[in-house]
Design a binder for these strands. Structure first.
Length: 202
DNA sequence: GTCCCGATTCCCT
DNA sequence: GGGAATCGGGACC
């Protein structure tokens, strides 16, 4: 890894997902083969507090990773063909990584996603991001602090945006009024632009 | 055991 | 903008 890329401490992840989510913007998701994306869009899922969360009804075999220690990767399978990546906070809570800007290993990402015709199509959605980064069930539970399974989140020193865009989460049917989606303003690699999204003042 | 539908993507109109 | 692809989780009988 380049000098200046530093893993985040375990405690970074151990807080409410609505606090963790905006802090993950501009962090890097990195594979040991050199692939890396800058995280530009995230959503919070707050376990038992959140009817839209996989952890809402408690621990199951599928969501067990989210009930484990913070700083691990929860990978889920959806629509019969897509994988999704979450950073685990603990207590059944986590942050969905919805979109990234490819910054390294782009050839490998294009090989993993031959359908993508532009860099902008490589990781601009949760399923695309997972496919571009080669994430599947085998990486569920990977430690994002130590990178033990070849995937890690690091900071390159870029701070999160001071005024991220917030709005309702995408693709859910419950708790649709929770403004628990955050993305980097005016970023071309964000998955979708919400009409209800607005600039945050914090 | 059965049934419904999902934290999506892609292609066609 | 609409619909198909595709399959596992989990609610319910």
């Amino acid at each position: 890894m380049p000098d200046g890329w530093a893993p985040l401490p375990r405690e970074f992840y151990q807080r409410h997902p609505t606090l963790l989510a905006p802090e993950l913007l501009n962090k890097l998701l990195v594979r040991s083969d050199g692939r890396a994306v800058r995280i530009v869009e995230v959503e919070a899922y707050a376990g038992h507090e959140d009817p839209a969360a996989h952890g809402y009804r408690g621990r199951t075999a599928r969501n067990a990773t989210m009930f484990g220690p913070p700083g691990h990767l929860y990978v889920y399978f959806i629509y019969g063909m897509h994988w999704g990546c979450n950073a685990v906070c603990g207590n059944g809570m986590g942050v969905l990584l919805r979109a990234g800007e490819p910054i390294a290993g782009i050839e490998a990402m294009m090989a993993a996603r031959p359908v993508a015709r532009r860099h902008q199509d490589l990781a601009s959605g949760p399923g695309k991001l997972s496919q571009a980064m080669g994430v599947n069930r085998s990486m569920d539970g990977a430690d994002l602090v130590t990178g033990d399974r070849g995937i890690i989140i690091v900071s390159d020193g870029t701070p999160p945006p001071s005024a991220p865009v917030t709005g309702p989460r995408i693709g859910i049917s419950k708790a649709t009024d929770f403004p628990w989606r955050w993305h980097v303003p005016d970023h071309p690699h964000v998955s979708v632009r919400s009409k209800k999204a607005k600039e945050s003042l914090t």
